[in-house]
Write a protein that binds this DNA or RNA. Structure first.
Lengths: 288, 288
DNA sequence: GTTCCGCATGAATCGATAG
DNA sequence: ACTATCGATTCATGCGGAA
């Protein structure tokens, strides 16, 4: 049970087994997007919504063991529709996780700016998902200054956002003190964000699909860890969480059951190390 | 039990008593923002979060009786923080209302663009609330065309020339075919919205505070009723729902326990009738 | 080096049809 | 009656090649 040998690895396997090998209280942050309740086959064989809670509870218990006492667990999930209704497995899971001892600290909303198209007689397109924030204690690590955003009126914010991106291209290697550097450039006031994140999904990546965009784990990693900390993702898929952690100089441990995704995640990480040129894009906050 | 005598009235009283006097299956839409679980005194004496569900369930049962079979119930609510955690009374209420026979059709998110200021060590400002959509049947009245919004400007370029891929997608039975029915798209100016509403709170109302902005009931009234229909609000407060209904030529029935609010709501309605000049503002959808 | 523009694709859901 | 499959419907975004 030595953490070191797992660090910065994508581990192939069922997280229910792999997690038990990881030492207790070793993660500063767990951020993940497990397979949603669905009848369709997916990497875990398709978990029926009616059995989702009983499937997930042993995993969340292991996650609680593996998390540091001051750490955080971010669970990205969404209740899907079954027979015309939103299924209740998500809210039932929240209640059960509290019975396990988790604290339900917050429910961040990810507003998906480019949600899936479609039209139905009784509902509109689904444009949001939960990012539940669970902790083990009331006191936990949080670095709010790392995710501050420029404030100001609508027009000026647009211009500022452009210059921000340019600046970031130049400085993408040096990570610390992000906000301060922007402050030097822009010389404006900063505001703390809210619990609503406005992010587009990444849909035009040929060959792979990510459950969430890079900006999502990036934001929570910046908010809830410091450089050198350890970030876990037990359902890492194409490796997005690992890439976000690596870019921000955090360690990661990723687990993935699907061999194809393991291969893909490793490839993406290698490309990331080689290229290094892709600018890190922070989420935008619509203050308008 | 004649509906007519209640129409377009603000009725002073406890909704638990007044509702029982209203005839069954008389409302096309119920839209309301009940007092949230809180220890602070408010119009219903301050409902402790731990007792919220048992307090609300008799009311939701009456609402179910009073609603038409094809009607909708929009419940604007938010779990507040108790001892550092989001309280579970809201999700417990959803589960219990389903036990009463309500269908949990959707959970719209109201993104509060200008949310309440403040700073805390372990959370950010709360910028969203639930608007739960409950129905009695899978088939219910919905007028989606009434709330369409202008499309993003991407459309101009996209549809200028029909790409070869659109055709291919059409022929090859791709999983989701944008290329289908291209004729439907030519010249289309409006898109259907999503389940995320971007509305500012009303903050500068002299002397009173509204639970939600006029645009919120306006949007749901347009979506879920037609002119001449009947809209209920059992916790009408300063009368926002009534004003929205009146502007849209729907009938309303409002109930309010606090005499001061009853007076205020009636005043606002009178001013509305006299002035008539205030333009109706539709919600904006952030297309950026 | 910009800006413009074509283009693939995505945690979807409903209703009808088939087993 | 109950489940599995399939076709129909619909936007917005970032990438990459062209101007």
């Amino acid at each position: 049970m030595v953490l070191k040998e797992f660090l910065n690895q994508i581990i192939a396997g069922d997280c229910r087994e792999v997690l038990s090998e990881l030492p207790a209280k070793s993660a500063d942050l767990i951020v993940t997007s497990p397979p949603y309740g669905s009848r369709r086959k997916n990497s875990y064989g398709g978990i029926h919504p009616d059995h989702y809670v009983e499937w997930f509870l042993p995993i969340s218990l292991e996650l609680k063991r593996v998390l540091k006492d001051t750490g955080s667990f971010i669970l990205n999930i969404k209740e899907n529709v079954e027979k015309g209704e939103r299924h209740t497995y998500v809210i039932e899971l929240v209640l059960q996780m509290r019975m396990q001892g988790w604290l339900w600290t917050e429910d961040y909303v990810w507003h998906k700016k480019n949600c899936y198209p479609g039209k139905w007689p009784n509902r509109f397109r689904d444009a949001w998902e939960h990012c539940f924030h669970f902790t083990k204690q009331h006191q936990f690590a949080m670095y709010q200054d790392a995710v501050r955003v420029p404030m100001g009126d609508w027009k000026e914010k647009r211009l500022r956002r452009l210059s921000e991106t340019d600046m970031r291209r130049d400085n993408s290697r040096a990570q610390s003190g992000f906000g301060k550097r922007i402050a030097n450039w822009v010389g404006r006031e900063f505001a703390y964000p809210t619990n609503v994140l406005h992010l587009a999904t990444e849909c035009s990546n040929r060959g792979h699909s990510a459950a969430f965009p890079l900006e999502l784990p990036t934001w929570f990693i910046q908010l809830l860890t410091k450089p050198g900390d350890v970030v876990f993702d037990p359902f890492i898929g194409s490796g997005t969480t690992a890439i976000a952690a690596a870019k921000l100089h955090r360690h990661f441990v990723g687990i993935e059951i699907d061999a194809m995704f393991v291969k893909l995640a490793k490839e993406r990480l290698r490309a990331e190390e080689a290229g290094k040129s892709i600018p890190l894009i922070l989420p935008e906050y619509a203050n308008e």
